[in-house]
């Protein structure tokens, strides 16, 4: 049951079609693992905390650098040099004391991924490199967790929700060419913000029980062009098996 304070706090959200008081209670029971508290993670964490997701698990090994501040909007200038996971968790707690904000000042790695992810209902991939993204994808496939993926490049962003048994990140991108796209090529802060906010939107919809649309969204915020690509299951996908015969390997 929601308290009167919660009814007031979430009033504008509770009246949303498909949400309701029941949906608010679902959010309260939902835990979201946000991997990476940078340009994507910052707005994602903020909206999830504001919405009243019951538990956030923030995974981030880094310390805040001045060069992060143009896009990582939950931090303040004086947070420079301090743990981003700690500052992000403190931000979430200040924004909404109803939310339990856990943090881990470490990268997601082979050794801890399964343990961390198994404890959450939804995973948001807000990382900044292919290796971490591949690990998150493998872990979500293995543990059958919905994965809300976003990635950015300059003014461009990609967003998708991968549901267990319906194809994975590797089905869409069977090979990556590390080195062709470098993280130092710049990123427009609001482009990261838009993608991170949309990750929070997708996580909330999942928690409310709304079906994801089964597409990858390609966002071009330089020209304001948006396109959709229908997600596929790649036969023989080395990560999920592609579900060619309705079976998912590794589960």
């Amino acid at each position: 049951m929601l308290t009167e304070r919660e009814f007031l706090r979430y009033a504008r959200q509770i009246v949303l079609p498909g949400a309701g008081a029941e949906g608010q209670e679902k959010l309260k029971r939902t835990s979201v693992c946000v991997v990476g508290a940078g340009g994507l993670g910052a707005p994602c964490i903020a909206y999830l905390a504001g919405a009243g997701v019951g538990r956030l698990v923030i995974i981030e090994p880094g310390r805040l650098e001045p060069g992060n501040l143009h896009r990582q909007i939950i931090y303040r200038n004086e947070d420079s040099g301090f743990s981003k996971a700690r500052s992000a968790a403190a931000f979430a707690a200040r924004l909404n004391p109803e939310v339990k904000a856990d943090m881990r000042i470490e990268p997601l790695e082979e050794g801890n991924a399964e343990h961390i992810v198994s404890d959450c209902d939804i995973v948001a991939d807000c990382t900044d490199n292919f290796a971490a993204r591949a690990l998150i994808n493998r872990t979500c496939v293995r543990l059958r967790k919905p994965l809300v993926y976003a990635a950015i490049y300059r003014f461009e962003a990609q967003l998708a929700v991968f549901m267990p048994g319906r194809g994975c990140l590797a089905c869409q991108f069977p090979s990556v060419e590390e080195g062709t796209i470098r993280p130092d090529e710049g990123v427009a802060g609001p482009a990261a913000g838009a993608a991170g906010a949309m990750q929070a939107m997708e996580a909330l919809k999942l928690a409310w029980g709304m079906e994801p649309d089964g597409h990858m969204l390609l966002m071009d915020l330089r020209n304001n062009e948006f396109a959709k690509a229908r997600l596929r299951r790649l036969p023989g996908c080395p990560v999920c098996g592609g579900g060619a015969n309705g079976k998912i390997s590794g589960t």
């Binding site: 990476g36 940078g38 292919f130 990635a151 950015i152 990609q158 990556v176 796209i181 396109a227 229908r230």
Partner: peptide, 29 residues
């Protein structure tokens, strides 16, 4: 909006008004 198999993509027919997107994965965050 439908992904093509790269190995067979070249032979796929085009109609007037079709929309082709070509994109790689990106990794920034």
């Amino acid at each position: 909006s439908e992904m093509l198999d790269n190995a067979a993509a070249r032979g796929v027919g085009i109609k007037d008004g079709d929309i082709l997107h070509i994109f790689p994965p990106v990794s920034g965050g």
